[in-house]
Design a protein around this nucleic acid. Sequence first.
DNA 1: TCAATATACGGAACACAGTTCCGTTTGCCA
DNA 2: TGGCAAACGGAACTGTGTTCCGTATATTGA
Lengths: 195, 195
Amino acid sequence: MVDIDNGSGSSAPRKRADARRNEETLLGVAAAAFITSGVDVPVRDIAAQAGVGVGTIYRHFPTRADLIVAVYRHQVEACAEAGPALLASSSTPHAALALWIDLFVDFLVTKHGLAEALQSDDAAFETLHAYFLDRLVPVCDQLLDAAAAAGEISPDMDAYQLLRGVGNLCIGAGNNPRYDARRMVGLLITGLRLH
Amino acid sequence: MVDIDNGSGSSAPRKRADARRNEETLLGVAAAAFITSGVDVPVRDIAAQAGVGVGTIYRHFPTRADLIVAVYRHQVEACAEAGPALLASSSTPHAALALWIDLFVDFLVTKHGLAEALQSDDAAFETLHAYFLDRLVPVCDQLLDAAAAAGEISPDMDAYQLLRGVGNLCIGAGNNPRYDARRMVGLLITGLRLH
DNA sequence: TCAATATACGGAACACAGTTCCGTTTGCCA
DNA sequence: TGGCAAACGGAACTGTGTTCCGTATATTGA
């Protein structure tokens, strides 16, 4: 569904040069717009900024979720890859889990509206949901397993549920000085620990 | 902003009978619609169900938030009043806090879309936000103070922040069997406890 | 270099929900 | 019962997502 390559190699028939150029431009403009206006920024605004028609956006990114995924793919990958690394370098699995969750939270709270979109049950965000889950649940699962094996946490904590809870706690952070998502998530992870 | 009385007493000039009747009807229809379609049900749908024009809804309830508050006012009051009662009847302040939060969570997870609306930064939900906060923050504060005084929790937990976190955790509950908001909130409250 | 053609583009048009506004109706009181 | 303030209904306006199709153009083969 989301295919950003095709700059040279790969099998697909290879896209036209203007199409590739537009896709590139759109990714850049969207990234900037997400920062200034949140991921809910109107499609028309992005189109206008990029100097293309709305049709062009929809052709490249059939749903808003596809655009969001494309913009943040690198960062999500980095987060996913940090999981095993932290597990190897931390003093205990629970510490690794806490650090990894911190990474995830830092990512979410700096993306205006992303946490909201991630939890939305709107069908338009299905792809977004699926991508994050596919990529991060296995990593989280690994960390939870390790912590459970070490007897640090109860073995019945589900990775999906934990990520969902953490994502929920990040909603509204970043535009409300009285709410500190990091602190709340910290409490949640503390609560996970056995004694 | 929200005035539902005027059936007889009070000072205001007293409303016309048809107006009072419509308000009553709208509250009933809205309550039913909120259950079947969530608090985001289109205004037109409520109007059609009630057999009135949309203008009539807006006249009685200037914003959707006013309608939601009117529908759930009794339950919120009950929740607020349960705070001191639980504090008096529980074994420890932390236990009272946990029970009270459970009450709040039970309320939220059974109202499709309410938790989302509560955290939305959409200006239309300002009234909703304000009402819940005005009514519940002081109660939560009292419980937190008592628990802190008993040395059960850290004294720097802010009631607003805790309620916000709990509200966030309730988002998406009730339409996702894989996510148990009660469990997540339980972890949060556990994490609050010192040792 | 020059058609021919598939590919991509732009933006008008449509769908849908919130909200406003005003001509019409109706309850109330003298 | 007549007059009027109060309330009503719903058409119309706004903003946003999404679709669709006539037009433009990159690419390719001759």
